[in-house]
Structure formats: C-alpha cells, structure tokens
Design a protein around this nucleic acid. Structure first.
Lengths: 112, 112
DNA sequence: TTGACATATTGCTATATGGTGATATGTTCC
DNA sequence: GGAACATATCACCATATAGCAATATGTCAA
C-alpha cells in the first residue's frame, strides 16, 4: 500500500466532517441567523421577530447550528439565548464574499 | 423603512450566493476532488482512477465545481484537464479543520 | 470516414432535508 | 396546581441532489 493511499484513506472521516460544517453553512436561512447573532446573543423569539420566520423553523435551524458547535445555548428564564461560539465562521464568509466580489468585478471588466 | 431592514433585504441575494459556495463544498466527494487537484491539474480519467469513482459522477461533480468557479477546464487533446482556480478553498478547509481539531481536543480534555 | 478512446449528458432512483402545523416540554407567576 | 408564555419536537410534504447505467458528444489516429 502506498503512502499516498494510506493518507487519503485516513482522511476520509475528516473530509466528511469538513463537508458537514460546510453543509451547515450552506443554507441562507442559517447564514441569516448567524449574521444576526454576530451582533450579540439573542433569544429564539427575538430571532423569529427579526427574521420573520416561523418559530419551529428557527428552533430547528438553531438546533443544527448548535449541534455543529457554531452557536451556544444558554437558558435565561423562560427564554433561551443563543450566541456565536465560532467567530471563525465570519472569516469563512469573508473569504467567500471576497471571491464573489472578485468574480463580479471580472465579469464587469469583461464587458468593457 | 429602517436602515437595518433595507440592508438585510439587499444582502439576501448575496447570502444566497455565499450559501451556494458552501453548498458546493458540502460534499466529501467534491472535497476529495479538490484535494487531489491541489497537487496539480489532472484529467477526468486520472481523477476517476485515483479516487475509484464512476466517470459519470466525476464529470458531474467537476461540472458543479467548474460552474462555481472553483476549478478551471482546459482541453488537452482527447482529454480535459481540470485545475484549481481558487486557492482560497484551502484556506476555508484549513479554518474548518482547525475548528474540528480544537473541538476534538476539548472533548479529550473533558474526559481527563 | 471509421474505430477507439475520453468526456458530458440524460433519465432514473434513493435519500436527505427545509419548511410547516400541531403538539409536547419547560419555565414563570398567580 | 393551573394559566400563560417560550422553546423543542413530531409527522408530514415538497424539493434537491448524489450516484448510477446508458447513451451522446467530442477528439484523435489510421
């Protein structure tokens, strides 16, 4: 067995984990929630109001974000407050935004 | 209309675009292909051999990567060579890997 | 042109999941 | 305890898509 084959095989589960994180970030709804939480911790109902989404859906998406370790959960009386635990996600988004901007500029330049 | 509402509305399409890029990166198969291409440009059949995947599927995933502007296509006789056009994706993967490593270490520490 | 090979596309199935209404669980206050 | 509110979960539908076999398209060599 070659060294290369061994390395790739071992990296399989890691690749799946990486893909899983990207998968969590691949829904506009969840990005909206993360963006909102970027300004500070919020309760579920505050998110529901701000984003005009159904409570069930917000809860569900928060569960997915929480499971992925991107946001944290904290009881606050009858409410539950969520907050960002991985500021790294904003670096990720910034990198992608930079690429999109570059692509858009290239498209404009090609029309001149 | 509040300034905040206007800003969020305008950002809707951008958020969707960002989510789209993450979506392309959310499949282990595509990450495998990108990882392989990170070592240099390869033809479709070389990728098929290296990753032991069906040709139809490799072609399909390359199409998705290409459409997203992450890889470039270049005819080379009867073959077609693909190569990375966005080294940024490796930064993205590194950031995510760092998070996963941190999570794993935290889990280990909590068991001590 | 024809044959051999490389790549792309098509039609399909199976699976995953976002969003929803209904309902369950948890929390506070009386 | 019971009412009122906040959050989570359940069951469901609709949609998206990975992977596949079959086939179409593209390229070269003879």
């Amino acid at each position: 067995m070659s060294r290369r084959a061994r390395i790739r095989r071992l990296e399989g589960p890691i690749l799946s984990s990486v893909a899983g994180v990207f998968s969590v970030l691949s829904e506009p709804t969840r990005l909206q929630i993360l963006q909102l939480l970027g300004e500070g911790s919020l309760s579920v109902s505050e998110i529901v109001t701000a984003l005009e989404m159904k409570q069930a859906n917000v809860s569900k998406q928060l569960g997915i974000l929480s499971q992925a370790g991107l946001v944290g959960r904290e009881r606050d009386g009858a409410n539950v407050r969520y907050s960002i635990t991985e500021p790294m996600i904003f670096e990720l988004c910034d990198l992608v935004c930079g690429k999109l901007r570059k692509d858009a500029e290239a498209r404009i330049a090609s029309l001149k």
